[in-house]
Structures are given as C-alpha cells and as structure tokens.
C-alpha cells in the first residue's frame, strides 16, 4: 500500500491552514493606530492617570468606577489629591469626545468589543 500522495495532500492542507496569517495579510504593511487626541485633551496634558497606565489598564479603572458608582453610589474618584467625577460619559468623554477617533481605532485594531455603549451615550461625531 502506498498512501504517499494522500499524505502529501494532507500535509499541504495542514500547512495552508497553519500559514493562514501570512497569506491572509499578504505581506501588506499594517501599522498600529494612533488614537487621536482632541484639542481639549491635548491642552489638559494629562489624564486621570499617566499614559502608560491608561493604555494598559483603562478598562480596569472604568470597571472599578462602574461598580463603585452603581453599587455603592460613590461617584468621586480621588487620585493624587485631585477629585474626578467617576463617569465615562461626563468625565472621560468630555476631553475624549470623539469615540470613533479615540476609542474605536484601537478597539477595532485589537478586536475588542466593549459593551460600554450598550448603556452609555457618547457625543455625536462631527462628520
């Protein structure tokens, strides 16, 4: 019995699947998105926490805000002696008013689909 042709076909199928990312992107250059800061955010210089923290942990921060606000009615977030209103719509989106340019760009790139806006409103985008 000689099954070599069948085995080789099997191998080719396996490697076609295995190398899927290489030919799906077909060598196109893909660059990471840069979230666009609004003028107001540029002027404010710093967010509630530093940039590195916000890039990595903003979801964790917001999750904490939500739980404290909804469950314990604690609406104030205090850090470094400053007080902020713990609110996505009112605090975050006051500066980062453009959801498409600021939030969605990275979320889409990293295939993250947060359900913030199931409940929250975001400012209308100017086209």
């Amino acid at each position: 019995m000689n099954d070599k042709p069948k085995i080789i076909i099997g191998l080719i199928i396996f490697f076609a699947v295995f190398t899927f990312p290489f030919w799906y992107n077909h060598g196109a250059v893909s660059s990471a998105p840069e979230p666009k800061l609004s003028d107001k955010a540029e002027k404010a210089k710093h967010c509630v926490r530093d940039t590195d923290y916000m890039r990595k942990e903003h979801m964790h921060l917001l999750d904490g805000w939500r739980d404290r606000t909804v469950r314990d009615a604690e609406r104030v977030y205090e850090i470094d002696g400053k007080e902020y209103m713990a609110s996505l719509s009112n605090t975050c989106m006051e500066c980062h008013s453009n959801k498409a340019e600021f939030c969605d760009k990275c979320h889409e790139y990293a295939s993250v689909d947060p359900y913030c806006w199931d409940c929250h409103k975001y400012p209308k985008e100017k086209k």
Binding site: S31, A32, P33, D52, K56, A110
Partner: peptide, 10 residues
C-alpha cells in the same frame, strides 16, 4: 499585570 495590547499586535 496587563499589557499594552496594541503594541503587542504591532
């Protein structure tokens, strides 16, 4: 510990 996912995807 969290990582910057966008950088990793880069």
């Amino acid at each position: 510990t969290k990582v910057d996912v966008v950088k990793i995807k880069e």
